[in-house]
Design a protein around this nucleic acid. Structure first.
Lengths: 188, 188, 188, 188
DNA sequence: TATGAATGAGGTTTCATTCAT
DNA sequence: CATGAATGAAACCTCATTCAT
């Protein structure tokens, strides 16, 4: 039993969303899952929106951390790209269950707090893309677009896996990784 | 005022989702938006699930139609790819508002009816990819994966545009189009 | 297909009640069962209450008719009693399905119209009991009470059969018939 | 004001049924009658069915208790029978209002839980009838049938009283009691 | 007469939130 | 801090009744 009640509530909510979807989430159920009284949640979160927002933030942080893990800025761009791709893929695989939460939260009305957070969390990524462009290795595009070109396919692949039960072989995944590299690099 | 009440209801639901999100959609509100009595909806749709499902189907059809429009199977693969990309982009631009509905519907429990419909609607696309692979022009990958590689980036780009208010220049979009082509084609 | 729409509606209602119970009865369903439009019912019955009331009346008439059938006032009291009992039993057996309607209708707010009808329909019964009392054969009681003593047990027996799945042998039923006779007759 | 909310709800439901019939019973009205919020009922009863079922059970228990009160198994069969009859009559008189609930509940789809409960509650009665049969005092019939013969008339009498405003004199009631005894006993 | 689409009040149930303890 | 019973607005859905055709 985790002592930090705040965290316990967040984890309870996460569990419930991944298990029963976003519509199945009620404050009562969260409390029960967290083994707390209903009212207690309101001591830690202003209201349900605040809880959801915090949940989103937590997920963003965890994803950013996993995505950027072991990416060595001093290694080659190609090595960094490959590491990012593998990280992204691993994260999606292990967290298939939070996909539903993710897409839900993504479409909530944006607040500036989140925008800023995202910018902050993914700054290393921005530097990575900028460096690649400077070196003439990557196409001359804004980093958001390079990001989309490199990793948009990854999310689409994962969506196929999770939502449509399509599975790909390891070999195919390797080819996809290289295709992602092809998408962002300059070709003669 | 549209005479076909069924369509009126669907459009009303679409409007509300895009304006207030999926949780903002209540049968009562749909009725009001469609300028009908609550009960009337149930003359045309068995229940809320049926309405949502139909909405999903409608969106799939409209998207497929727009996506595949003017794609001439007798033209070159490159031309076809470019047309698809432009179609996809146009559709997303004109239907920014359905994004929220889309991602929601996508995460609903799949039913076989939808799977079949998707397969049916996008069969021309499958043929396109298969032909490319046969000709040795596209990487030797399942068509789902080629799809993800070619158009996953497009969706990610649009998500940036709609959800995070990032805008790209026409020039950048053209580069992205070519990058999508690079992602799926074989390089020497 | 019965030509008389009024009767068609009544029969449809009866069928539905016996099949799905009183709560399952909606005007829409009655119409569908009768193969008529919803509105048509209102040409023949002022409202749902009127339909139910008429249904009750119909059932009372049918029951009275069945109950009193072949009871010959010139035959012995005992023979008449036995015929009544057998009639009552047969009716209940063949119309187990309307029991639910019956008990429902019975507990509706009484109206004078029904009271009068009942009195009218069962007058032969009253004469039967009065004659028995006059002859010193039956206990000196009001005919309603004699009725209750003679046939209350019958209904209770049928209730056991229908509602609690208790079944009785033919032999037992014969003994019960005699017991009913014992209940109303004078003993030395 | 009763402190036990559960009981308050049951009594409120009982009152409403007896006053307005079963169709007049809505959860909202029950709540208002019990001076509670609508949602509160659902803290004590899973749903309306559960409430009705509990109501039925409560009525069965109360009736059994009243019916069997002060019936001394060591006293004579005749004395026991008379006590039962008087108890039954008193209960019906004092609870005329639950008649409507009763007949409704009786026609609900039976569940095994209720069957078992009935068997349990009325076991003393079964022993009473079996003893009478053994002693050769009662007719050789299953106890359910003896029950019907002895008390079916009582219910019919009460139905006349409540539903048709027929009233009987004390003297007549006494004769009826003896007639009930005549119905189940062996005659030379 | 006959139709059946349309209505909207009212049914059951859920759930975010509060507050007395 | 913590509790959880209580609230009541609002969700989905049904259905008796009307009315333009």
């Amino acid at each position: 039993m985790i002592a930090d009640k705040r965290l316990r509530i967040l984890l309870a909510a996460e569990t419930l969303v991944s298990r029963f979807g976003v519509e199945g989430l009620s404050m009562h159920r969260v409390a029960k899952q967290a083994k707390l009284a209903t009212g207690t949640i309101y001591l830690y979160f202003k209201d349900k929106d605040a809880l959801m927002s915090e949940l989103h933030e937590r997920n963003l942080r965890l994803f950013a951390e996993a995505f950027l893990a072991d990416v060595d800025p001093s290694s080659s761009l190609k090595q960094q790209h490959h590491q990012l791709w593998r990280n992204g893929f691993s994260y999606q695989q292990s967290n298939a269950n939070v996909q539903r939460l993710w897409v839900h939260l993504e479409t909530l009305p944006r607040n500036t707090r989140h925008k800023q957070l995202i910018q902050e969390l993914f700054q290393p990524l921005e530097l990575f893309f900028e460096k690649g462009v400077e070196q003439g290795c990557f196409k001359a595009l804004p980093s958001e677009m390079l990001y989309a070109l490199a990793f948009g396919s990854l999310y689409e692949i994962c969506r196929f896996s999770h939502l449509r039960d399509v599975n790909f072989s390891q070999q195919d995944m390797d080819v996809a990784l290289l295709a992602s590299w092809d998408a962002i690099t300059v070709h003669p």
